[in-house]
Amino acid sequence: MPVNETLRILRTVRYDAKHYSLFLQAGRVGPATLPGQFAMLQAGDGLRPYLRRAFSVADVATLAGVPCIEFVVRVVGVGTEALGRFAEGTPIPVLGPLGTPFPIDDLRVSDRVALVAGGIGLAPLVLLARRLAERGVPADLFYGGRNESEVLKRPDFERLLGAPRCRYATDDGSLGRRGLVTDLLQAALDAGTTYRRVFACGPQAMFRTLAALLARTGTDASFALESEMACGFGVCLGCVVPGRDGRFLTVCKEGPCLPPSAIDWGAV
C-alpha cells in the first residue's frame, strides 16, 4: 500500500554535472518497495516545479547504518534540477511505492535472466539486481551509455551480479564495446545464450529495438517504462501508452513494468 510521507535527504552524491544520487530516509516507503516500482517526489513547496516527479527507486539499503532509499537522477528540467540542489536534512514529500513491479516471484536459481539498461534506465535495475542476487538467480547485465562517465553504479552492479556478468557498450567506446546495448544482447543471443526473462529500462529507441529483437526470439520480457505523469496513482490518466488491445495503458498503475508485447510500438 502506498504511503504519503515526508522523508529527509540523507545525502546527495554528484557523479557529474548531469547526474546524481539522492539518498532519502527509508521511512515506510523504502521497506515496502519492490524492484521496478517508483515514487513521486515533490521538489520544494513552491509553484515551480508544480507537480511531483516520478522516479524509479534505484535501491533500498543503508547509508552509514541508516536505512535509506536511493534515487539516481539525470537533470532534464526544472524538477530534477531543483531536487539536486537541496541541502542534507531537507524534508521531501514522497508518495510511494507505486506501480506494478518487475515480475520475479516465479524465478528460480536454475533460471538465467538478463538486465538491459540504457542511460539513466539503470535506475530500477540496481534494486532488481539486489533482489535477484539475494535469491541466487543468475543475471547478466547489458548496460549502454554515452561514455564511461555516464555509466553509473558500476561497482554496485559488479558486486551484486559478479563483474564477469556485467557487459557495457558506449557511444564512444570509452567503456566496453562501441555501439548500442541492444547489439550486446543480440550478440549474446546469437552465441546461443537463452534467457528466461529480460528486464529492461531505457530510452524509447532502445525499447523499440529490444521489443522487436525479443519478439523474434520469443523471449519473455518486462520493460520499466517512463512517462510524464501528474499523479502517479492512476487518476490523471496523463501517462498512458497505446496498448496492443487498442486501449491506453497507464504507465503509473498498469506499468511501469509491462511486457513489451502489451504495447503497440507502432503507435508509441
Partner: peptide, 23 residues
C-alpha cells in the same frame, strides 16, 4: 471512452495543461 492519444499532459508555471479526452 478511450480518450486521446498521448502526450496528454505537460507542466506549466504554477499549473499544467491536459488533454486527456474524457477517458
Amino acid at each position: 471512452c478511450l480518450g486521446n492519444p498521448p502526450p496528454r499532459i505537460c507542466e506549466t508555471d504554477a499549473g499544467m495543461l491536459n488533454a486527456i479526452g474524457l477517458q
